[in-house]
Amino acid sequence: MPVFEQGYRPYKGTVTRRSPIPSMIWHNVRTRIRWYIWLLAAGLMAYPYAVFGVMVFLFTAGQALFGMGLPGTAGGLPETAVAFDSVRGMDPGRMLAMLTATTAEGALPLYWNVMHQASFAALVLPAVACGGILASDRTTGAMQIYFARPVTRFQYMVSKVLTVALFTALVTAVPTLAIWLETVAFSPDPHFIVRTWMAPFAIIAASAFYGLWSASVILTLSTLLKRPVLTSIGAIFLYLLLSMLGEQVSHGVGDKMWRILSPYYAIGGFTAPLFGMDLPEWLITPWLAVPALIMPLALLAFVWSRVRAVEVTT
């Protein structure tokens, strides 16, 4: 007789004390990957890769295989690149040199630029995939599955934040790491990997920062709105609104510092230094921490309190 036909059997084995977080993340991710998420992720991952990756491939492959030189690099690259303004101000030769990452100095800014091009996508994908990450737990009663079992609120929150961060990483860390691997593979400099050893860490750290920001917005909206689609739309709308607000206020006041209201500049201002880049003068302000760090943490604290309220009514 098959074992499952023997009726109820007592369990005599061991019980582990391992954290349930990995299992919770796996279920969060697995149940959210639908066909349209695959499509969206593929498109968003391909975007920076299409813009930068293909160019890098062509130039580095051309240089490695055919010894093609790069135009306009005789003047050399600046010792440090400045975020936001630097690329636009460089001559095409320098820009190409940076794009092709033939030197470590040019490579790190390249990685940051690749990643930061996806700052909007870093919100769009998790917003679409995780719009109901908390809302559906409430509407389907899934919170009872967690909180009636040995799962703490901290573990629950961490699993949700990391789930959003993983979707964020799909469009930030994954394509950027792919480009790093490509530049390592094709660089004519044999010591390139040694000189850019910090790049993967910087990429992951920056991606975590994008993930934190995205998670704070998405989880907050997901605790307030019952319908996942409203959370998705709300998160995207909020990003665009803040971006527009930052630009308009900075123009209106005549002070570029107000651009920090825009997530694009706020997050970029925190992530660019990880890649050894300087910030433009107007972005060097302690107020940068408000939209970039304090606001996400405050939103997560709000989510924490909301989860607590739901937990006790479980």
């Binding site: 959210r32 899934a142 009872q144």
Partner: peptide, 13 residues
């Protein structure tokens, strides 16, 4: 073990 009164499931599983 706790069997809640109201629906409790994770869609997709």
């Amino acid at each position: 073990g706790y069997m809640p009164e109201v629906d409790a499931y994770i869609p997709g599983l």
